[in-house]
Simulated scan of single mutants.
Amino acid sequence: MKKEDIRIVFMGTPEFAVESLKALVENGYNVVAVVTQPDKPVGRHQDTLQPSAVKRYAVECGLPVLQPVKMKDPVFMEQLRAYKADLQVVVAFRMLPEAVWAMPRFGTFNVHAALLPQYRGAAPINWAVINGETETGVTTFFLDKDIDTGRIILQKPFPIPDTADVEYVYDGLMYLGAEAAMETVDLIASRLPEKALGEAGFRHILDGVSRPQPCAGIDLHPAPKIFKETCEICWQQPSKKIYDFIRGLSPYPGAWSVLHAVEGEEGKAIPIKIFKTAGTDRKSLAPGGMLIVERNRLYVSTADRLLELLDVQLAGKRRMDVKAFLNGFKDIDGYRF
């Protein structure tokens, strides 16, 4: 079967998903509709509606857009069924009920930003960097009843340099995911005959282009959703672990800690985000203590080594390098983490 003959419904919301949709549209794949999240209210009074990145691109291309509040809504289900999709492609969307992912005759595949079965969950890119991985990648897999457990179609690896933060990995996987989406559709199309087959025949062919996830004997690392409390730095850990933790949350949502006055101004606490650090060979003293050198370099004690802070941000201020931060914080010597 030709790729142009496969009717595709694309599902996604953020910028990460746009590159996959764009690749399919601009390379001649038959995207018949797009499903994305409802517009979000923004602004001080929440009176302005902001469309998702995927919706903005879809509208530019003149593609029909569906924005269900609930995926099981009967009206939405009827609208979706009317597009007679052969295949659904999901990138950075939401959980789908079986009635949705099982609707197309060729099934529904997801582009996941990790090498499954590792890092199943909502934040695979962050957790791979936080855990100090040297490699991650993207996986396409058929959706089933459980989260990120379906049969693997293909995988593409991506190296993580020791200096990389989440933004670097995010951008790399965004483009790699787009390649994987196209290759997956091509693979499925190449195995499908021109003549009609029964459901059992299609299922046999699709099982032939995929394989079960290997889980036996593997130490699996999850990738749960990240909340504000997840991002607090624990200075009692080794410096390398803190270094990876900070870059795994940089630039968003950002690792944070609190500066406390050592003496005077009792009870004063100053939250601060930390975006970039550098390891050192200097041994630590008490974790959380600070060493300031010539008012332009700042080191924090961890469980083993001093960690140099490079880029930080105070609440309500812009992100800045440490020299600018120290110049504007004259009584920094009276604080510690």
Rank of each mutant, 00 (worst) to 15 (best):
residue 90 V to F: 09
residue 89 V to I: 05
residue 182 M to P: 12
residue 143 L to A: 06
residue 69 V to M: 13
residue 134 T to Q: 15
residue 90 V to W: 11
residue 94 R to W: 15
residue 100 V to W: 08
residue 166 V to I: 14
residue 84 K to S: 03
residue 88 Q to P: 01
residue 109 F to L: 03
residue 109 F to R: 14
residue 141 F to K: 03
residue 162 D to L: 14
residue 153 I to Y: 05
residue 105 R to F: 08
residue 74 P to A: 11
residue 99 A to Y: 11
residue 118 Q to Y: 14
residue 95 M to E: 05
residue 116 L to P: 08
residue 97 P to G: 02
residue 196 A to N: 12
residue 72 K to P: 10
residue 139 T to I: 01
residue 108 T to E: 02
residue 148 D to A: 09
residue 75 V to I: 11
residue 118 Q to P: 06
residue 196 A to S: 14
residue 158 F to S: 04
residue 75 V to E: 15
residue 92 A to I: 15
residue 80 L to Q: 08
residue 162 D to P: 07
residue 140 T to F: 02
residue 109 F to K: 06
residue 160 I to R: 04
residue 125 I to C: 08
residue 158 F to W: 08
residue 100 V to P: 00
residue 124 P to I: 05
residue 185 V to E: 15
residue 123 A to N: 05
residue 140 T to A: 06
residue 158 F to V: 12
residue 143 L to R: 05
residue 182 M to Q: 09
residue 78 E to N: 13
residue 142 F to C: 09
residue 197 L to T: 13
residue 143 L to M: 01
residue 160 I to T: 07
residue 85 A to V: 06
residue 182 M to K: 15
residue 191 R to C: 10
residue 157 P to G: 06
residue 169 V to Y: 04
residue 153 I to M: 03
residue 112 H to Y: 01
residue 86 D to K: 14
residue 104 P to V: 01
residue 177 G to I: 11
residue 150 G to V: 11
residue 71 M to C: 10
residue 90 V to N: 02
residue 186 D to P: 10
residue 171 D to F: 13
residue 178 A to E: 07
residue 180 A to C: 01
residue 84 K to E: 07
residue 95 M to S: 08
residue 124 P to Y: 01
residue 102 A to D: 04
residue 80 L to M: 11
residue 148 D to H: 05
residue 174 M to C: 08
residue 98 E to D: 00
residue 82 A to C: 14
residue 84 K to M: 12
residue 172 G to D: 03
residue 108 T to S: 05
residue 178 A to K: 05
residue 104 P to H: 09
residue 180 A to G: 02
residue 169 V to G: 05
residue 138 V to T: 02
residue 145 K to C: 00
residue 128 A to N: 08
residue 107 G to H: 03
residue 127 W to C: 00
residue 114 A to G: 11
residue 128 A to M: 09
residue 194 E to C: 04
residue 153 I to N: 06
residue 170 Y to L: 11
residue 136 T to H: 05
residue 98 E to G: 00
residue 67 Q to I: 09
residue 140 T to P: 07
residue 164 A to T: 10
residue 150 G to T: 06
residue 159 P to S: 13
residue 107 G to Q: 05
residue 128 A to G: 12
residue 75 V to W: 15
residue 120 R to S: 04
residue 118 Q to E: 15
residue 108 T to C: 06
residue 88 Q to N: 10
residue 82 A to H: 13
